[in-house]
Amino acid sequence: MSRLTDKNLVIAKEIIARYPRQKSALIPLLHLAQEQSGYISREAMVHLGELVGVTSAEVYGTATFYEMFRFEPIGKYLVNICGTMSCALMGAHELMHHAEKRLGVKAGGTTQDGMFTLAHAECQAACTEAPCLQVNYRYRLRVSTADLDNLIDDLEAGKLSEEIPAHGVLAKVRQHIAPDRGVGAVSPELVDQAPAWLNGKAAL
């Protein structure tokens, strides 16, 4: 589990090319590395540093700032139960207790079989549908304890593998800009004039 694969390297280079400064691509690339292995390995960070031209310490500094990046393998399904106010008001703590009992691990832990990692999450932007949770960042809304049991059953049985990919895979659709359609990165070094359409005339 290490450096980016050749296939991902192609994607990485495409991502890097979109930005005026290479370092900007760091977070998307870290996601790519996490998609590849389910977590971000040391070698991956070294590789990303080489790709965007920064030291591995800088990659590490950026990566550890963000909560979604994991530096050690975790369960296939990351169950994030929101505990912020709206969800807490609607019983998120009880849901968490139930989940802890059901999975047999404390929040933050991973089940023995490596299937589930249970975690506290902060507000996930589904407050009116409290309590809510995310499995690998896919929403489940107004989750009762029974819903949670069903969800875990389904995940264990592999029924949801279509909808919910393994941890690390975020969006299943990637932006792709066809070379003939893209304008290309606009970097401060190369541009010092007003854009063409700002000439006081209509563009069409």
């Binding site: 920064v54 030291t55 310490a57 800088e58 590490y60 500094g61 950026t62 550890t64 700032f65 963000y66 909560e67």
Partner: peptide, 9 residues
């Protein structure tokens, strides 16, 4: 030589 950095948050 940015070999040290803030980490975590």
């Amino acid at each position: 030589d940015p070999l040290i950095s803030f980490t975590s948050r």
